[in-house]
Design a protein around this nucleic acid. Structure first.
Length: 597
RNA sequence: GCGCCCGUAGCUCAGUCGGAUAGAGCAUCAGAUUCCUAAUCUGGGGGCCACAGGUUCGAAUCCUGUCGGGCGCACCA
């Protein structure tokens, strides 16, 4: 079976993966080398699996810079107890000039302190890599298709779409930064009954534009004003020849026009958030190209689609339920609770029937798929996972597929919920919110909670300029760094790595915190959780502000020391690199790193 | 009735493929500060990680069950 791409308007540019070795990766390799040496000496059986060996910063900084559980994980295989094995590991680690100290703690942890020189080298590495600092080769060029937003093209975007849009976009950027090729895709549901409703609503506005009195918009049609200009445009372009003719004659034409107009609206809304998709995939085009039929034929051939009758839903009474024979996909074979119809009794494809073919099409151009959905679609996750498994495994190429559910956002205004009603058309649009609070606030706020948790979005809290507001706090740190650099320049000081040997423990603590960035990027990418970056940035900003505050009481801790150009240069260099890391992180989240506030 | 997500401090939330004494902000309490590196600072108290079992050197984290909240549950999208 072979599907061709439908309207694959653009292929993503390949991201340059930048395999830079971070300090954490370098020390993980050192530990690994020690273990290999121990194998050669016979202290460890050769080929001991090391999958569970971790080298990471301990939770409690007083334990040192890095800790490893290697001795505890491998003690059993070495037929010894963890502390004894740890002693052997420690002996070898201590021989490394970059290891200041290595100690055994608790049940067999090994705590390491790294030399100041290695932290200074990491600081220099941030400067050398600049915007590339933190990039990872983790993704290994694997192409990931991230499908997000995919709102029905029946009107402008409202706040219900916003969280998924931001999370999806940040995730896409994160994966790119971590070495993946990414396709940002939007699935356009332009084949269902909703776009027919849209077409009828547009026709009404068209008649209105031609002078008909339309009165109140009938129940079941979209009442929003945004269709008025669509009607005007249609009247201008088509004249009055579709005014009094049967629906069959104008519906497809009006539908196509209206959908295109709505997509323009949506693209504008997305642009306000800084979001741009690579591909808008049309459901109608997919169907016109016969993709669902191809999928059905293939599935029937493999006994994965059959004609059957659905059982009546349990725990719910439906007055008009009657048994009907439909083509059903055997999703139960892949863990779903029920087989699912791919066609309706009128012969048209169900949403699922088309979606199944659509996912297979995506799988043809990518190695892994991610869908970002609203939590109200949680019930359909199993069936689509089943479909992807059936189609891709059947085609001999199993594809990693992940559905991320994004919970609803409760809009609040000064503690009171904002009422939204779709029926009356009084929903809060995304454009209104962005206009009121700004793109950066919307994006960052949406990323300060894990997506699967419900969240509140309070207009009042979110624009507050204080340290209680994470967006402000992080941006302020960056702005503060730049104002310091400006001030330094005005006084004749510029950042320089010449004397970074002058930086002491408190300054290096800042470096240690910033040096976590590459790890956080990888962990967030693996977990597909961009919000981890937001928390990291908040903490890094906090550490920077805390250091800054020391300068209030102790002028010797300020960045600019008038009579000490060497130290000033080194500290400004430090500040500049902290700024670089904040900038890199904010760039992934799509939030501007402002230089002034 | 079934499925998915969630349950961590008074509140809003983090918590690294299982790791050491479970963290942050708000609120509260006690101090500092009115200087300019504006849009505060330092510190304290506060926890049965919903509950009960299980897995193992070790569980907030994994598994099972119970309770509570959200979302969804014929061919809609």
């Amino acid at each position: 079976m072979r599907f061709r791409a439908v309207r694959l308007t653009a292929l993503p540019m390949s991201t340059s993966t930048h395999p830079n070795r971070t300090i954490h990766a370098a020390f993980a390799e050192k530990v690994d080398a020690v273990l290999s040496a121990l194998e050669l000496e016979g202290a460890l059986p050769p080929g001991s699996p090391r999958g569970n060996v971790a080298v990471e910063p301990p939770r409690d900084a007083s334990h040192g810079d890095l800790a490893t559980n290697a001795a505890m994980v491998l003690a059993k295989q070495a037929r010894t107890n963890p502390r004894e094995l740890a002693a052997k590991i420690v002996e070898k680690l201590e021989a490394d000039p970059d290891v200041e100290s290595a100690e055994i703690a608790g049940p067999g942890f090994i705590n390491m302190r790294l030399s100041d020189a290695s932290w200074r080298a990491e600081l220099a590495a941030i400067a050398a890599l600049g915007a590339d600092y933190g990039k990872s080769a983790l993704g290994n060029g694997v192409t990931v298709n991230v499908e997000y937003v995919s709102a029905n093209p029946t009107g402008p975007m409202h706040m219900g779409h916003c969280r998924g849009a931001v999370v999806g976009d940040a995730l896409a950027s994160l994966l790119e930064f971590a070495g993946h090729k990414v396709i940002r895709e939007y699935y356009v549901n332009d084949a269902g009954s909703q776009v027919d409703t849209l077409a009828r609503s547009a026709h009404l506005r068209y008649r209105e534009a031609l002078g008909d009195t339309i009165g109140t918009i009938p129940e079941g049609l979209y009442p929003g004003d945004y269709l008025v200009p669509v009607g005007v445009a249609l009247a201008k372009e088509l004249g009055d020849r579709f005014k009094d003719v049967p629906e069959e004659e104008w519906l497809p034409i009006f539908r196509a026009h209206a959908v295109e107009a709505m997509l323009d609206l949506i693209r504008e809304d997305l642009a306000l958030l800084g979001i741009q998709h690579d591909v808008f995939a049309s459901e109608a085009a997919l169907q016109a190209a016969g993709k669902p039929a191809e999928a059905e034929a293939w599935l029937r051939q493999h006994d994965l689609v059959y004609d059957g009758i659905l059982e009546a839903p349990k725990g719910k009474t439906l007055d008009d339920w009657e048994p009907v024979e439909l083509p059903l996909f055997r999703s139960t074979r892949f863990g779903d609770d029920q087989d699912r119809p791919i066609k309706k009794s009128d012969g048209k494809w169900t949403y699922f029937g088309a979606d199944l073919a659509y996912h297979f099409q995506k799988a043809e151009n990518a190695d892994a798929l991610i869908d970002i959905w609203g939590a109200d679609h949680s019930g359909t996750v199993k069936r689509i996972k089943a479909a992807v498994a059936a189609l891709t495994e059947g085609a001999g190429r199993a594809i990693a597929f992940d559905v991320k559910l994004v919970q609803m956002v409760q809009l609040m205004r000064a503690g009171e919920p904002v009422k939204m009603s779709k029926r009356s058309g009084s929903f809060v649009t995304l454009a209104d919110v962005v206009e009121e609070v700004g793109k950066d606030v919307v994006r960052f706020t949406m990323l300060t909670r894990k997506p699967e948790a419900q969240m509140e979005f309070d207009f009042a809290k979110v624009v507050e300029a204080s340290k209680d507001n994470p967006v402000f706090y992080v941006q302020y740190a960056h702005a503060r760094i730049h104002s310091t650099l400006r001030k330094g320049a005005a006084e004749g000081f510029s950042p320089s790595d010449e004397h970074i040997g002058l930086l002491g423990a408190e300054e290096l603590d800042l470096v240690k915190q910033a040096a976590q960035f590459p790890r956080i990027v990888e962990a967030a990418a693996l977990a597909r959780e961009p919000h981890r970056l937001a928390f990291f940035l908040y903490e890094l900003a906090g550490a920077f502000h805390a250091y800054w505050n020391m300068g209030n009481d102790n002028p010797g801790k300020r960045f600019i020391i008038a009579d000490n150009p060497e130290l000033s240069g080194a500290r400004l260099f430090l500040a500049s690199q902290i700024g670089q890391v904040i900038r890199n992180g904010l760039a992934i989240l799509g939030v501007e790193a402002v230089e002034e506030m």
